Simulated assay, not measured.
Amino acid sequence: MSEEDKEQQITLVDEHGNEELYNVLFTFDSEDYGKSYMFLYPSDAEDDAEVDIQAYSYVPDADGNADEGQLNEIESDDEWKMAEEVLNTFLGDNDED
């Protein structure tokens, strides 16, 4: 994970207007889908707790920044499967460190 990903935070607003701060776990690009993706987890998550990780596709802003771009929900089952495989590989790689 790059230093940039470690420090990135994004505020998500739910359907009720509540804001919650999330940390960016990591981002990646998929050539198969021609999209960029990011995994987020709540910034207040405890290190030893089970964490709810969320995945989104995103469109970066004009400068290429993910934190100011547009997040989109992943809608297709094939995209979800691909994103889960990437996440599982990432988490497996970190367990070996």
Rank of each mutant, 00 (worst) to 15 (best):
D93E: 14
K6I: 01
D14C: 14
F28W: 03
E84M: 10
S57A: 06
E15V: 13
S30K: 13
K81L: 06
Y56M: 00
N88L: 11
H16M: 14
E84Q: 15
N18F: 10
N72Q: 06
D67N: 13
L25D: 04
L91F: 10
Y58E: 01
E15R: 14
Y33W: 03
Q9P: 00
D77K: 07
D97Q: 15
A66F: 07
S30R: 05
E84P: 08
I74T: 04
N18A: 04
D32L: 09
E4I: 01
A83Y: 05
S36P: 03
D52M: 07
D95R: 11
D5W: 04
E31Y: 09
M38Q: 05
D29N: 13
D32T: 14
G92H: 08
L12G: 01
G34D: 13
D97K: 15
E79T: 10
E31M: 10
D29K: 15
G34W: 11
Y41V: 02
N18T: 07
G64M: 08
Q8G: 07
N88T: 04
F26S: 08
D93P: 13
T27K: 05
S76M: 02
A45Y: 08
F90K: 13
V51P: 05
A55L: 00
M1V: 10
T89E: 08
A55N: 03
P42A: 07
P60T: 10
F28A: 01
D95M: 08
F26M: 08
N72M: 14
I10W: 03
D93L: 15
Y37Q: 06
E68L: 12
T11R: 04
V13N: 04
D93H: 07
S76C: 04
L25P: 03
V59Y: 00
P60Q: 08
D61N: 14
H16W: 07
Q9I: 04
D63P: 11
D48C: 06
D44V: 12
W80A: 12
